[in-house]
Design a protein around this nucleic acid. Structure first.
Lengths: 149, 149
DNA sequence: CAGGCTCATTAGCTAGGCTAAGAATCGTGA
DNA sequence: TCACGATTCTTAGCCTAGCTAATGAGCCTG
């Protein structure tokens, strides 16, 4: 139960949902803007990151992790493959499936862009009070859990 | 599994930036999925919300608030106008400018969709421990501040 | 071994984002 | 006063990202 007695700082789930949604939406847009022109897009970088974290995935698995539909992932992977950042290899036992993995170049490019991508946000975070960073770290964990639901 | 990685051992701003970015990105995508089909999109709802909060804005102002370029806002407003949710009225003194405002219908539709949009997230939040909600409330404030920078 | 299922891709659509360029209007300085 | 630069919005044209529906290849089970 949500035992909400209107205590100071205690918001209802509805109110909080609105607040959370607005804040992450704005920030998301703000971060998108900070991207270095002409290269990896947000979605491409994200897919590359997931691939690298997992080691290797099938398109279906990657689509699930990224929460998009398989055809969308086909497109994104296609772009990454064109640039030589991701390799498709056949599945050893199942002829339908494909194994995706980041190439060496993909890993290098990823590290470089990840850094640039985070630069703006990192500088903002560095300016915060330590306890605020603590709050954000905890909040991120909570949000991750929710996203997986 | 609240893997307490370095909360006590202080995360660097870089590490934290990565964590925060990933979590909000995933959640953003998750929320987008939860939208009721065939109606207002995320961007349209956001623009409508901003308009309503501000009362009335010019396209340029709305684009700034939403952090997109003016031509993008022209498109979004066009869609909203087609549906009769936003009205364009001429600026009283400056013939170049336009005043945008939410129509009565726009306000009604907004309220309804805002609710639906938040429903999934709200239900997730309701299931959290009170102190987790507290954390998210604080985190949202911090993120809002950052986004404005 | 036939039929049904799963996986990946292709085709085709919409929305959202951008830049470049245009038309209308404003305002200012000669 | 009026011509010219600046501002505002829109149009045109491009790309990415997302979706559904449909296709083809391969797996598996009765």
């Amino acid at each position: 139960m949500v035992a909400d007695h209107g205590l100071a700082g205690r918001e209802s789930a509805d109110e909080l949902a609105k607040t959370v949604r607005e804040s992450i939406q704005r920030l998301n847009r703000r971060i998108r803007q900070a991207r270095p022109v002409g290269d990896l897009t947000f979605s491409q970088l994200s897919a590359l990151t997931s691939l690298q974290l997992a080691g290797a995935l099938t398109p279906r698995e990657l689509a699930d992790v990224e929460r998009v539909q398989p055809p969308t992932m086909t497109k994104i992977v296609g772009k990454l493959e064109e640039r030589g950042l991701v390799a498709r290899t056949p599945h050893p036992t199942d002829g339908r499936q494909v194994i995706l993995s980041a190439t060496e170049q993909g890993q290098a490019v990823h590290a470089q862009f990840e850094k640039a991508r985070n630069e703006w946000l990192a500088s903002q975070l560095a300016a915060l009070a330590p306890e605020d960073r603590e709050t954000l770290a905890k909040a991120s964990e909570i949000l991750q859990k929710i996203s997986r639901a």
